[in-house]
């Protein structure tokens, strides 16, 4: 933990719950929108712009159905957008905040429905199904928590070559994955050694290599020695995915986990079964 920044908001809270040293950070993820540059000449730069583009190009946009993780986070992003920004929504859940802010987001998605793929009568089951629609050219945009995989997918031909990341002016949500040790673990000491290994600069650099896994590191570059920093500088760059600093510009943290289920349920009741 000596190489991580103790004030990094992505590492101090895990979906709204203070970490308090109960978990060890592993890697970071950034929710990213992806578009087909051949189909969209002038890409939007905000979530509002994306939804406007969807309405102007009916049938070319959709999102995975919650409770899929990616669909669920898209819901929360729309919530933040209709509320007026990430600062307007309290991170901790309260029924009062939900009743005040959620209806606008649900209404926005209901209004969007007729312009979606298949007019919103059904949605892709999960992120893989959405990626398949994108690869087949049925929609022009997709979204993912793991943009580093895109390099591999474009190289192997699974995604079209004109695939590009769509950075948003207001930023998107980012989070970190953690390693935890169960209370009844038979070898807690050994597990802690593994967790330390996972935090070592060598492991983090190897993991960040797009040819290996491409997961963003949790380490603070200022706390590394010059040699260790060199490991990260030598990582191959990708034509498709810009570096993490660009992707995570203006990133905001995740809402508390208690927000997830009520939003997903409201979506299923009002948006999915509406027609």
């Amino acid at each position: 933990m000596e190489y991580t920044d103790p004030d990094d908001p992505l590492l101090t809270h895990d979906f709204g719950v203070p970490v308090d040293g109960c978990e060890a950070p592993w890697h970071k993820a950034q929710f990213t929108y992806v578009y087909n540059s051949e189909a969209i000449a002038d890409p939007p730069t905000s979530l509002d712009g994306i939804l406007e583009w969807a309405e102007e190009n009916p049938g070319r946009f959709t999102y995975p159905a919650p409770p899929d993780f990616t669909g669920s986070v898209f819901l929360r992003e729309v919530l933040l957008s209709t509320a007026g920004g990430a600062d307007e929504v309290p991170q901790t859940f309260s029924q009062e905040a939900f009743d005040r802010l959620a209806p606008a987001a649900i209404q926005k998605l209901e209004e969007l429905e007729p312009s979606l793929w298949r007019e919103g009568r059904t949605y892709p089951r999960d992120e893989q199904a959405l990626n398949r629609l994108f690869a087949n050219g049925e929609v022009d945009m997709t979204m993912t928590y793991g943009p580093a995989r895109l390099t591999d997918l474009v190289e192997s031909g699974a995604l079209p070559e004109s695939t590009e990341i769509l950075p948003l002016k207001e930023g998107t949500v980012g989070n970190a994955s953690f390693l935890a040790i169960p209370a009844n673990a038979s070898d807690a000491a050994g597990a802690m050694v593994v967790a330390n290994l996972a935090l070592s600069p060598e492991q983090q650099a190897a993991k960040a290599n797009p040819e290996v896994w491409g997961q963003f590191p949790v380490l603070d570059m200022d706390r590394l020695s010059a040699d260790q920093r060199q490991l990260f500088k030598e990582l191959p760059s990708s034509d498709v995915v810009p570096p993490y600093e660009v992707l995570s510009r203006n990133a905001h943290g995740e809402l508390a986990a208690e927000w997830v289920t009520p939003l997903d349920q409201a979506w299923r009741q009002d948006v999915a079964s509406g027609r």
Partner: peptide, 9 residues
Amino acid sequence: PWLLGRISP
């Protein structure tokens, strides 16, 4: 129905 059906109902 999971693979080939609609999301709702």
